[in-house]
Amino acid sequence: MNITRRQLLILLPAAAVAWESIIAGTPEASPNYNMTDHWWGMLMDVTKCIGCGSCVRACQLENQVPDGYFRTWIERYHVSDWEMEYPKVDSPDGGKTGFPPAREDGGKNFFVPKLCNHCVESPCTQVCPVGATFVSPDGVVLVDQKYCLGCRYCVQACPYGCRFINPATNTANKCTLCYHRITKGLTTACCEVCPTGTRQLADLKNPNDPIHAFLKTHSVQVLKPQMATRSKCFYYGLDGSVR
């Protein structure tokens, strides 16, 4: 291949412009959305959860989550009426297709939906060696799929088991709190389809969000508060046996 000096002089700036666009990436997609105006979390009223699995199915369809992996899932607890330390937990296929009949040998049974807690002090983002995962300015823990090496540090670091390696891309994957939806003014897929109102998306920076009235008048709990992750998933009616 022969290139004349003239051709080279034309080609070089063109290549520079192309490379520049690769480096710069795509610009902001939701021009009317201001990140600094929001601080996202979620409220779970576990007293309402019926374990129907609608949230799990919706999450998989909305986010193309591979079979056998979960960005959100439902656990069913069976706890003896006094022995809180040894709950029996099952979650067949993440609760995607519902649950078989519960144990009837006394004690209590209940469902607990789980997902990424979008921690303020998230252990998973702190361990990333390449800056591929981060807490966005609006409080959502995200993974940059182009930057992730798939080293699995974050998968190990999450105390809630909310991350997995997507076998299709070999990169870390997790709940984005449906970031592509909430930035367009929609609620998350799981909150949209939850038939009982167990799950409610909450914007903690919006003074008109009903979350504030709820938090003022109800006793809520976060998962594993001893981990000091400052989780933003608030559980109402959570049993002490839940891990």
């Binding site: 795509t26 959305y33 981060f134 807490v135």
Partner: peptide
């Protein structure tokens, strides 16, 4: 915004929506 690629936020926000919303 921090020690990460700022445009990643826009790329995630640009993903297509499957559930239209009621």
């Amino acid at each position: 915004y921090g020690h990460y690629r700022g445009n990643a936020i826009g790329e995630i926000a640009a993903l297509p929506v499957s559930y239209a919303g009621h």
